[in-house]
Design a protein around this nucleic acid. Structure first.
Lengths: 201, 201
DNA sequence: TGCCTATATTACTCGCTAGTAATGTTAGTC
DNA sequence: GACTAACATTACTAGCGAGTAATATAGGCA
């Protein structure tokens, strides 16, 4: 693979590539087996190196796990940043804005299912990062409330938790990008307008 | 084994009480540590018996885990049955009916946090039982759609998954019964009417 | 009281897996 | 081609924890 066309990373040395393979293999094993059941022997077999090679790059099983989690955190943080509601939309397009945010988050979470499984569903730190996500969402909701687009009789934090619950669940189901768009559309519609029949549909 | 499990359980024999203590201890350890990290030695210490006593009542660690999961499944099934929307309410009281269902489910899930943790969040069988729950909810939603109370442009299964995601998340946060009632109220309100400012509050 | 069964314990084995010491092999540079 | 890091391997050890054999005690009933 001569994917050498990177500006910032001129040439990944052999060790770096091995390390990357190990990390990916670790992510998969941790995702499928969980931390305790995952075996170093399986990780190195998947990466096609032998056992002590693992310890050339990671101090311990725990260290590798922590690094997988960190990778996920970083990606999710970036996604949260991208998902910020663009404020320059028309006032009547809240639906579009919410849909954009939900789509961005769903796509980011679905982009690497191993990281998702470890970082969002089995790590001790999962609640922590969800709290971070929750805060961001709540802040956005509060802003919309202040702007008069959202009703104010519902706590932003509560809404944020609902949205996270929904996203958690949707992210887990394998789906194509277009299916995810569809899901995002439904989610936005449900959260904005509810399931009750609309007075003037 | 003396099949003493009759109508009102006249006297639990010593063995039965030990077994119950072990099962409860196992539920706690499994909930807090996960299956692999949970140690038989910790379980028996918590139950205040010694190691081989465990194997008098459970064939293996796996067997005990399976029994914990089964306990949860049974309880949740009962809760689902109780949560069926009572059909004899007025047509204008959908909110009450949804609230009732949500409250019932939340209460049932919160009634034993160890079982909840194992059966809903860490068991391989968790997705299975959530699918069961999802079907029930979807069926209810479909009925409401047929009766003209819910909009029909949203798939019942999708709505069911959203609700489960929300309930999953809410159930995890420790809360008093009255807080749960409040949560249920918000959930019903959000899912029925949405977050957008209402045309005529 | 003495008997029998259910219940429990002490003191092990044994496999499995994270981690390591000693040693070998590439790949880049002169 | 020869030298030197960086990279990798074979062949171990250590200890943890599930499960077991042999043995001891409680408690209901004649």
């Amino acid at each position: 693979m001569a994917a050498r066309t990177k500006s910032s990373e001129p040439k990944p040395t052999k060790g770096e590539r091995t390390r990357a393979r190990l990390l990916q293999a670790a992510a998969r094993e941790f995702a499928q087996q969980g931390f305790d059941a995952a075996r170093i022997s399986d990780i190195v077999a998947r990466a096609e190196v032998s056992q002590p090679a693992f310890y050339l790059y990671f101090g311990s099983k725990e260290a590798a796990y922590a690094e997988v989690i960190n990778q996920f955190r970083t990606r999710l943080r970036n996604a949260i940043r991208s998902a910020r509601l663009p404020k320059d939309l028309e006032k009547d397009q809240i639906a579009d804005r919410v849909r954009w945010s939900v789509t961005t988050l769903l796509d980011a979470l679905a982009s690497d299912r191993d990281l998702l499984e470890v970082g969002f569903y089995q790590a001790l730190a999962a609640e922590e990062i969800k709290a971070e996500l929750s805060e961001q969402i709540a802040a956005n909701v509060a802003a919309e409330q202040a702007d008069g687009f959202f009703r104010t009789d519902m706590p932003p934090a509560f809404f944020a938790n609902c949205l996270i619950g929904i996203i958690e669940r949707m992210a887990r189901s394998k789906s194509t990008p277009s299916e995810r768009q569809q899901q995002a559309r439904f989610i936005a519609e449900l959260l904005l307008n509810g399931l009750r029949v609309q007075p003037h549909s």
